[in-house]
Design a binder for these strands. Structure first.
Lengths: 150, 150
DNA sequence: CCACAAATGCAACAGTGTTGCATTTGCAGG
DNA sequence: CCTGCAAATGCAACACTGTTGCATTTGTGG
């Protein structure tokens, strides 16, 4: 069954795209669906490989880059760099749940743990600087890796 | 005038390299000198372009990668990823002076700016976790890139 | 001074991201 | 329902970043 619309908590990707003021295309809907379904930010390579079960052909590599750029430009997706230097994208709503706490990155296993603490308020910026994102990351060994190393 | 040795506060790069237990080569000395002289982490491309005034020929691209890897492997340099996804290297001692303040990473030009503010104290960690490093990064547009974008 | 392991230089390659251009498509307006 | 146009797509080619293999050179301990 295909719903023609959706609840306020879970709007259809196509509606989000339309509301953002850009054209609703199959590519954009598919990509935004994938980003919203993913529990972690996705790389371009990971998304290129998604057959998505839909009968559609795979998305062109360049088109995927441009779709992602457009989603970022209209605020529906976020772009970040992982530790290997590869861009990763996430749905804009997804990080809201991660914005309010601190992350601990284990240098041993590479795992990311969410801590309860809130990130502290940012300091004053020099004139002309525009803040977009605050990242408070702790690095170290998690309980498991610490036990192994000792 | 060329000093044959140096003070304890400012050891020669060649001595640091020798002390690290790896061969002292012209490439390593030049690169470590550049890293120690730089006020910001340098990208591979930036270092490749350094004529350094010395009469030496430019360093081979691959050799530069390997020199950097070796400096990182023996603890004399640090490797990080900037917001554009390119690796940046810094002398290992340099980050000690960076540990006590906050960084602003420009998502436009990839530049890193040091702010005056101190990083806030880390929150309590779960049992067994060991803290090694605290990173408080702000992301956004620097004054230059902000002016271009507007 | 010599030998050997480490480091270098060169060529070729892989992955990631971008640009130009012709064609297709979403969407608004008749 | 058509039609036009700007936006989006697909394709080819390119640029940049980083890596691997291999022959040659060089630093260093003996």
């Amino acid at each position: 069954m295909v719903r023609a619309s959706a609840t306020a908590e879970e709007p259809l990707s196509s509606e989000l795209i339309r509301a953002a003021g850009v054209k609703v295309t199959r590519g954009r809907v598919r990509v935004l669906d994938a980003l919203r379904a993913a529990r972690q930010p996705l790389s371009h390579a990971e998304m290129e490989a998604l057959p998505a079960g839909a009968g559609d052909a795979a998305i062109d590599r360049v088109t995927l880059y441009r779709v992602l750029d457009s989603l970022v430009a209209c605020g529906l997706a976020l772009k970040a760099v992982d530790t290997r230097g590869v861009f990763r994208f996430s749905a804009a709503g997804a990080q809201r749940q991660h914005a309010k706490h601190v992350h601990f990155r284990c240098t041993g296993c590479g795992g990311v743990f969410c801590l309860k603490a809130e990130p502290p308020p940012p300091p004053r910026l020099p004139r002309g600087f525009r803040l977009q994102q605050v990242e408070f990351d702790l690095r170290g060994l998690c309980a498991g890796c610490g036990a192994l190393a000792s």
